[in-house]
Write a protein that binds this DNA or RNA. Structure first.
Lengths: 147, 147
DNA sequence: GTGCAATGTGAAGTTAACTTCAACTCAAGC
DNA sequence: GCTTGAGTTGAAGTTAACTTCACATTGCAC
C-alpha cells in the first residue's frame, strides 16, 4: 500500500500518534480518511513531519511552522522545487541561529578569561553596567554592535 | 548603595521581577531581606542572572541551570575561578549544540539538492526508510554515524 | 508625617505542545 | 464470526516558565 496509518507514520517519523492528531488539529498536517474514518497519510507526509521536527529543533514554534508549510501547494503533492524553496528559507534561519550561538560562545569564551560573565561588556572594563541603557538583557550577543 | 532592589535587578538584567521571584522559589537565586522584608540583591547576582539567561538561550531548562549553579560556593561570592569553571563547562554544551545545528544545516543543504528532506538519508538513495530501524526521528543529525 | 510607587505573598491564570482518559468503533488474523 | 490490537473523539490533565491578581506592607520624596 502507498498510504500510511497513523501508527505507521508515527513509527516512521518518531512522532507519537497523539502528536500527529494534534498537528492535524493545529493545521500542520492533513489526512485522508478511510470508510471507517481512520486516517491515511501519503508518503509525502513523512517529509512534512520531518520538516516539522527539523524546524522544532531550530526552536521555531508550531505556529510559525504552520505558516511556512502553508506556502506549499495544497492541491498537489509538493515537488522537489517546492521543498527546495522552503528548505533554503530555513537554511537562513539556521544560519542565523548558529551565528547567534557562535557569538554567545565566543563571548562566553572571552569572559572565561576574566571570569566576569557580564555579557554587556567585561565588568573590569565597564564596572558600572553603563551598557544597560542600550536595552535589557545580553545586548552584545543578541544585538552585536557590528550587526 | 551596593545592593539592588528587585526592581533595579530587573531593570539591569532585563528579567521581570515576577521571574526573579520565581527563580528564588525554584532555588536559582537567593536574596537577603531588609527589615521590612524586601529583597536586596548583591551585584554578584547580576552575573548569576546573566548566566541563567545565557543558559536559557542555549535551550537548557531551569532545572539543569539550578544544578549547575549549585556548584558555585554558597558561603562566599563566587570568584573568577568559580565562574571560569562553570563557563568552560557550558562552553562545551554550546559547542555541542552548535555542532548539532551545523549538521542539521548541512544535511538540509544536502537535501535541498534532491528535495527529499528525509534526513534519514536521501530517499532517492534509500527509498524504503531502512534506517528507521536505528530508532525514531532524524537519526543522521542527532546521532551521526561518525560520532 | 504623609502619599504613592515599589514590594511582599499566595493562589490562580496563561501558553505551548503535547499526553492521557474514557468510551467507542474498526479491521485483520485465526 | 469473534477476538483483540489499532484507531476515533472530545475533554481534561501535564509541564515549564512565567504572569496576573488581590490585597497587605514598605520606604523614599516632599
Amino acid at each position: 500500500m502507498d498510504t500510511l496509518s497513523i501508527g505507521e507514520l508515527a513509527a516512521r517519523s518518531g512522532v507519537a500518534p497523539s502528536a500527529l492528531r494534534y498537528y492535524e488539529r493545529e493545521g500542520l498536517l492533513h489526512a485522508a480518511r478511510t470508510g471507517g474514518n481512520q486516517r491515511r497519510y501519503e508518503r509525502a507526509d513523512l517529509r512534512r513531519v520531518a520538516f516539522i521536527k527539523i524546524a522544532q529543533q531550530v526552536g521555531v514554534s508550531l505556529e510559525e511552522i504552520r505558516e511556512a508549510l502553508a506556502e506549499l501547494p495544497e492541491n498537489r503533492t509538493p515537488t522537489k522545487a517546492d521543498w527546495s524553496h522552503l528548505s533554503s528559507r530555513w537554511r537562513h534561519r539556521l544560519d542565523e541561529r548558529i551565528a547567534v550561538m557562535e557569538r554567545l560562545r565566543d563571548q562566553l569564551t572571552g569572559c572565561i578569561g576574566c571570569g566576569c560573565l557580564s555579557l554587556q561588556r567585561c565588568k573590569l572594563i565597564n564596572p558600572d553596567d553603563q551598557l544597560a541603557v542600550r536595552g535589557t538583557g545580553p545586548q552584545m550577543i543578541l544585538n552585536p554592535p557590528g550587526a
